[in-house]
Amino acid sequence: MTVTGTVDRKAPGALRSAGSFLRTNPTILVGLSVLAAFTVVALIAPYVLPDPVRVNPIQRLRPPGAEHWFGTDQLGRSTLSRTLNGTRISLTIGALVTLLTVVFGLLIGLVAGFVRWLDGTVMRVMDGLMAIPGILLAIALMSLFGSSVQNVVIAIGIAEIPRMARVVRSSVLVLREQTYVEAAITNGARLPRMLLRHILPNAAAPVIVQATYVFASAMIVESILSFLGAGTPPTIPSWGNMLAEARPFMQRAPWMIAFPGVALALLVLTVNVLGDALRDAIDPRLARKLRV
């Protein structure tokens, strides 16, 4: 009874504050809506569209028209179906890389921020990883791992984790000097409780902002890896694979490049705009400075 009572009282309040947050930040609302639209497309595409890998040689390289809205590729596969199905792959890889990066970034950042004697070593390793250009690191890892969706996620994740760990560590270093954290320690709060109640909620903002950038960057890197032949297996209709296959037909069938290319740029743009808007909303001081 009490439990449901609390939830009932709390939920509308949380919803209302989320609602008013979105009303005062229309960019975030628009960004989330577009992202939701992409997600819906990703979810329903396999059920309403023809099989993206079905080959139909008679209908090859057809330009966009009434019959094939986005045209067809060199094997007669529907570009519409492949592009929309590609959304799912990009979003999945983006989301998994973000998850991986946040989990390990938090873990490494918290350890570096709290365990003094490990800090130097851990951060030197992170610096070393950051000295290898991210795309190159991911390519090198993929050349050893072999192409699969899982390996793409791990390879991009390894390249993204150091930056996230840095963001977490710098927040922790600031937070642990705060009076309320010291007070909690004086009051005998144990480490896990202190992390959950005091550190994590206050470090959340920069982590969320960084996570949106990771999400966008992961989708770009995935497409680059696939484009170079070191990403998702060629049988999967990811945007990078589509663009790689379309390259020899650039002059004859530009639509094969245009649709996945624009879809990719649009999705990444949406996530980046969302990231910027979140940063501005979360750090009003910085936002004022940038807007003036």
Binding site: S223, F227, L243, M250, I257, G261, V268, L269, N272, V273
Partner: peptide
């Protein structure tokens, strides 16, 4: 700047080749 920041390098490359070369 936002669009430039979000466009993958090979998408930009294809666009440039299509317009200015082809």
């Amino acid at each position: 700047a936002m669009v430039g920041f979000s466009s993958p390098v090979f998408v930009v490359a294809f666009l440039l080749v299509y317009v200015f070369a082809l």
